[in-house]
Structures are given as structure tokens and as C-alpha cells.
Nucleic acid binder design. Structure first.
Lengths: 274, 274
DNA sequence: CAAAATACGTAACATACGATACAGCGCTCC
DNA sequence: GGAGCGCTGTATCGTATGTTACGTATTTTG
């Protein structure tokens, strides 16, 4: 049963030629407003010609463009009148996707439920402290999160370093770390010995450790000043780092806000350098 | 301060003559969809003539009818993009954290709403196809997502490569890519020219491109066989990649499931190697 | 009550929009 | 390698749409 036009499109998008598929993709991406504009606007937005748009709507089964627009409008009208239908897409329930999504959303809510405003503010303040350097490192699967965070933090403040490469390389960087510095570690199961040893040494040197881990807590929690425990369970063969990712983004935003005055200047400078 | 057109109308409805007032009332009653239809339809719905409708929109301060319609569409677009503002939850507001979380959760729901089960299955099948090689690459901030995905995919199947380092390095890898290969690209605003050029060349070589981008669609969408448009808007100085991250995790899970038999053997082998 | 001003609709107009014919191009399949 | 097919863009056409001018109706004001 096909109820919405969006479903109709995603149902047939596979059988469409390249140009019409572009049309379909842009419509889905800006659903449904692009479809309410003129053919010319739609076509330029999709990067194709007007006839391709018309062929696209014809393939969907509409006699002409106005009829297609009317259908979109009717759908919109129904949505606007009953907001409940928006939140739940009946077609997508039942499949293998929504359990994954639902679990992820639950993980995030749970993660943030155990995370107070104050904790986050403290960590953000720690990260925004410009006295010392900031180092970030992660495990096998979480190192990309460290990179992601480092890429953003490095823009709003100086002395942000992501520790990459072989173990020997970042172990040597310990010599640069001291009491005023912050080390952000991502470590979820299965916890990596190398990271634990690294954290221990850093801790002995007085480094301020911020740990992102799962709800079972990496052994590094012993040495950490701040611990963020994210939920990771999802119906998949893998654990999910999504909740930690969102916490990281939240902190990035908070740090940026705290460094607003200096950060803005820095961002402008960087822009001009590009 | 007048923000929405509806407010503008209710502000001036008192000073309007009878005919225009009827126009105003019917617009409010079916807000805003009647305003997106033609002048003729609007006029018959309101029981007045077309010129009255035009005088009505002129009184609201618009130069012409299309301009009025554009304003309505922009307003609608803003509403549809951030459902949070519509179903504003007063209990959860207050701190700086929950708006961020709420927006992120909304982004994910919206992203998946525009993503059909079938599309994801198609993409998963593409990624699980073991005939060719899989390459992953990302932009300035999204490259960690590419790494994350690569780290997982590389475990369940061979020939998975993350393209890192300087532009020249991965440009040279193009020589290894052909029709049976898949290139996964992450590119959100501001889109990187180097990636676009890279994608174009890969496309010319017949490489199957899977694009992760934002709702405004990277220009790479032109060359992509599959496009995933994630919502990125959050109350922060940065765009959020969290929705794309979750889609990536979902795909990782789906691919792993598809390769279950072979993948499981592979995973055991890898375990024994550690 | 009269006269003026405002409001409204009918009808003609011009523009811009959607539709279509056609040619070029790439792709696939002999 | 060649023939056929399908896809896509350019250019043209007809028309539906928004716009405007003008005459009539209605209200307002002295």
C-alpha cells in the first residue's frame, strides 16, 4: 500500500534513469516544498532540465505538473491538520531499520538522563580552558570520534592535538603533557590495554583526563576526572557510538559558545586563510 | 515584532474592507495552503473576485502574488525543518543542553522519515557486493565518519579502503577504481571542491558512488547513484553530523547482517589473529 | 439627502509557466 | 565495430495565470 508520494518515489527510484533520479533525490531532500515551486526552480535545484522534471512526475503517474502539485498540497494539508501522523511513519515500522533507530534514540535519551547540565558545563569549561594543551585519542572504533572532536576544537582554540598513528608515536607525546593539559579519551568495549596504560601514565603526570566510554565503564575511569557513560546497545552485531557522538557534538557546541569572543575572531582569521 | 504572515494578517485584519477580510479569514482557516494555490482558486474559496485577493496581498505589503507565495513557502519550510518548534516541550526547555539534544533527535527522525527501507536495503546490498573494492572518503569534518564506517566494514569484508592524507594521494588511487567498485563520500556544507572533482572523475570511470550529504545536497549528488540526505541543523555554531552517523551505523549493521555467513568466519579469523 | 470617495467585480491584457517536438548523445546488445 | 534504443537538453509553442484598467455598486460624510 502506497500512501504518500514520498513512498511512491522511494519505491520507484530504483527504476528511474539518472536525471529523474536526481529530481527524485532533491525532492526527497527538500520534501515537499521544492515540488510546490515552479518547474523551472525545481529543475535548477536538481541540476536537470525542465522536461526531465515533467517526465519525472509523469513516471510517478500524474497527468501533468499541476496535478502533481495538488497531490503534494493535499498531503501537506493532511499532515498539518494532524501532527500525530508526522511523527510516526507506519510504513517504516516493522522493518529492520526502525528498531535500530528507536534503540539509538533511546540510548541518547538515557545517556543524557544520566548527564547533568552541570557536568557538561564543567567539562566544557575544562576544554575551553586555554592555559594548557588539549589531546584527543580513541580506540579502534572510537578514534574517529576523537578526530571529529579534534577537528572542531582545533578551530576555536589553539593547541588541540589528535594523537594518531602507532602506539609508540603517541606514547612519546606524553612528554609534552603536564598538569595544565587535558586528555580526552574515547574507549568502549572491548577496552584496549594500550589506551589504559597510556591513560595511567598520563594520570601520573597530572593530566586532566576526560573519558568517553560505555555504560560498563572502561578501566580508564579510575584515572579520569570526568566520565561520560554512553549507552551503546543496539540490535546489531556492533555497539553503537551514536550517543557518545551526540555528547561530543554537544560539548563542541558548548565550548564554542564559551570561547565565543576569542573563537569568533579565530574563525574569521582561519576563513581568511583558506 | 511580526514574524509570521498569520500574525501580520491578524494584526491588520481590522483595517481591511469586507471583501479582503473574507480573504483573510479563509486564509487563516486553511492556513497556509490556500495561499499556495492559484489566485482563482483562492478567490472562489473566499467567495470574492481575483482582484480582491491581489489587493489583499498588496495590503499585506507584498509586491505581487508570487512574492506572497514565496513568503508562505519559506515559512512552511522553516516549520517543516524544525519540528521541535512546533511541538515545543516547555518542560524540557531551560538549559543549553536539551535544545541541542531535541534538535538532534528531531534531525534523526526527519532523516529516517525520508529514507525508505528499500533505499537502505539497496545501499546495503551495494556495499555488501564483494565483487569490487570499497573506498570511503569524507570532507573536513565528515572524514571521521568515513573512517568510522571503514573501520567496521573492513572487518566484515576485504578490500575496504579509507582514503586519507593529502589530495594528491587519494587522487592517485583513482587508477584502482573501476565499474565494479563503490565509493562512499561524506560531504556536507561547505562542500569541498576537491571532493567534487574527485567524485566527478570517479563517476567518469564508472564507479558506483554512495553519497552522504545534508539536506541541501552536495553538488556530488549529480554523480551519485545513491544519496542520503541527513538533517544537520542544530542550535549551535556548527552543523550536526549525528544523523548521518546513525545512518552510517544502520548501514554497517545491515551490511554485516547480509554478509553474516562469510562475515562471521572472517570475524573469527580476525579474532584469532589478535 | 446629495455628492464624493471608496470598494468591488468584469473584462481585456501581457507575462511566465508548463507542455511538446526534435535533435544529439551515450549506452547496450548484436 | 555497428545498429538500435533510450535518455536528456534546447528551442518553440499554446495556455493558464497574474495583472491592470475601467465601470458599477456601496458606503460615507457634509
Amino acid at each position: 500500500m502506497i500512501s504518500s508520494i514520498a513512498e511512491l518515489i522511494s519505491d520507484r527510484i530504483g527504476t528511474m534513469p539518472a536525471g529523474e533520479r536526481r529530481a527524485a533525490q532533491t525532492l526527497i531532500a527538500n520534501y515537499p516544498l521544492i515540488g510546490l515551486k515552479t518547474v523551472a526552480e525545481f529543475s535548477t535545484a536538481a541540476g536537470v532540465s525542465s522536461p526531465t522534471i515533467l517526465r519525472f512526475v509523469a513516471r510517478l503517474g500524474f497527468q501533468n505538473y499541476p496535478e502533481f502539485q495538488s497531490a503534494l498540497q493535499d498531503e501537506l494539508a493532511a499532515q498539518l491538520q494532524s501532527p500525530a501522523t508526522r511523527t510516526l511513519n507506519p510504513a517504516s515500522s516493522g522493518g529492520a531499520v526502525s528498531p535500530m533507530l528507536e534503540a539509538t534514540l533511546d540510548n541518547m535519551r538515557e545517556t543524557f538522563r544520566h548527564l547533568s547540565e552541570r557536568q557538561l558545563a564543567d567539562i566544557a569549561a575544562t576544554l575551553a580552558h586555554r592555559r594548557g594543551k588539549t589531546f584527543l585519542i580513541g580506540g579502534r572504533f572510537t578514534d574517529p570520534l576523537a578526530r571529529y572532536m579534534a577537528a572542531h576544537l582545533a578551530i576555536v582554540q589553539p593547541d588541540v592535538h589528535h594523537l594518531a598513528g602507532q602506539e609508540g608515536i603517541w606514547r612519546d607525546r606524553l612528554i609534552d603533557m603536564g598538569k595544565r593539559d587535558v586528555l580526552v579519551i574515547f574507549d568502549i568495549r572491548r577496552y584496549q590495554d594500550s589506551l589504559v596504560r597510556f591513560a595511567e601514565t598520563a594520570h601520573q603526570r597530572g593530566v586532566h583526563i576526560v573519558l568517553f566510554t560505555d555504560q560498563w565503564l572502561s578501566p580508564i575511569a579510575r584515572f579520569a576526572r570526568h566520565v561520560i557513560a554512553g549507552r551503546t546497545a543496539v540490535p546489531s552485531a556492533w555497539d553503537s557510538s551514536a550517543a557518545l557522538f551526540v555528547v561530543a557534538e554537544t560539548l563542541i557546541g558548548a565550548v564554542t559558545r564559551q570561547l565565543e569572543t576569542d573563537g569568533a575572531k579565530r574563525i574569521r582569521e582561519l576563513e581568511s586563510l583558506r
